[in-house]
């Protein structure tokens, strides 16, 4: 089992994209992802693809790491593409026994694949240039207007940041407990389904118990350092929009509008 995994592959290189305000980045990527589905032309997607690639270059990421981040969605991609190709009704362009491919199906499959790939490109760029803390700070700021509906935005974002922080810890711990139980002769992949499920008890139980006691210690540590739920907290990093952010917004919006209105040229 992989003991650690990189959440969002955040790597610190000191690029322009790292300097952007996290709120701006989150908002831009979010709207890009939503409006991605309104682009109707291949040309439009090509423009967005070139835009995404230049962002990757700007963020000083290597393309190999981008493609590595695509790996988990590959199966999903393949599945939806195949599904669209074979099961969309329309003008037949290929037929062999029960296999029927329609022009509409092919078109849809291509669109969906491009959308998914672009989607993961953009989220990769966001998560690789924004640290976990920045992400949750940005997220908190963005959902804070919900406070007027008594939505506990601070608590929710604190919960998210704590969870993010402890996911890798949990993985490491699972790895260690598994090894320790294997040292006592435990086997995790042998026997019937029932036996297998039961063999996970020596892994899951300690994992849960340790997580609970860790949560307990964390709560005590936070309280002893003056944390009170709902009380106003100041921050170490104040978020402020700079000229760079306005430039980023302007560029993104214009590229996007262009991609939306451009006529098909291929």
């Amino acid at each position: 089992m992989k003991a650690r995994f990189a959440l969002g592959q955040y790597t610190y290189t000191n690029s322009l994209l790292h300097k952007l305000d996290p709120r701006v980045k989150i908002l831009l990527v979010f709207s890009l992802v939503v409006f991605l589905f309104f682009v109707r032309t291949i040309t439009g997607y090509l423009i967005l693809f070139v835009f995404a690639c230049s962002l990757v270059v700007l963020s000083k990421n290597s393309f190999s790491s981008v493609f590595r981040s695509l790996r988990p969605i590959l199966l999903l991609l393949l599945f939806t593409a195949v599904f669209q190709i074979f099961f969309t009704p329309g003008r037949l362009i290929f037929e062999w026994r029960f296999i029927k491919i329609t022009a509409e199906g092919l078109r849809l499959a291509i669109y969906i694949s491009i959308r998914l790939i672009l989607l993961s490109f953009f989220t990769f760029i966001l998560t690789s240039t924004t640290s976990g803390i920045e992400l949750t700070d940005g997220f908190e700021a963005l959902i804070s207007p919900l406070k007027i509906f008594r939505f506990p935005s601070e608590e929710v974002s604190l919960m998210i940041s704590i969870s993010l922080r402890f996911v890798p810890v949990l993985f490491e711990e699972a790895d260690r407990i598994m090894k320790a139980q294997m040292s006592r002769g435990a086997e995790f992949n042998k026997g019937s389904l029932v036996n297998r499920a039961r063999s996970f008890l020596p892994l899951l139980l300690p994992l849960l118990l340790n997580a609970l006691s860790r949560a307990d210690r964390l709560a005590i540590a936070m309280e002893s350092r003056g944390f009170v739920i709902g009380k106003k907290r100041t921050r170490y990093r104040e978020m402020k929009l700079s000229g760079l952010d306005y430039v980023a917004i302007a560029i993104t919006v214009s590229v996007f509008v262009f991609a939306l209105v451009v006529k098909e040229i291929v």
């Binding site: 407990i177 139980l205 300690p206």
Partner: peptide
């Protein structure tokens, strides 16, 4: 293991 008591179940 180091801290073996953390693996009790």
């Amino acid at each position: 293991f180091q801290y073996p008591e953390e693996q009790f179940f």
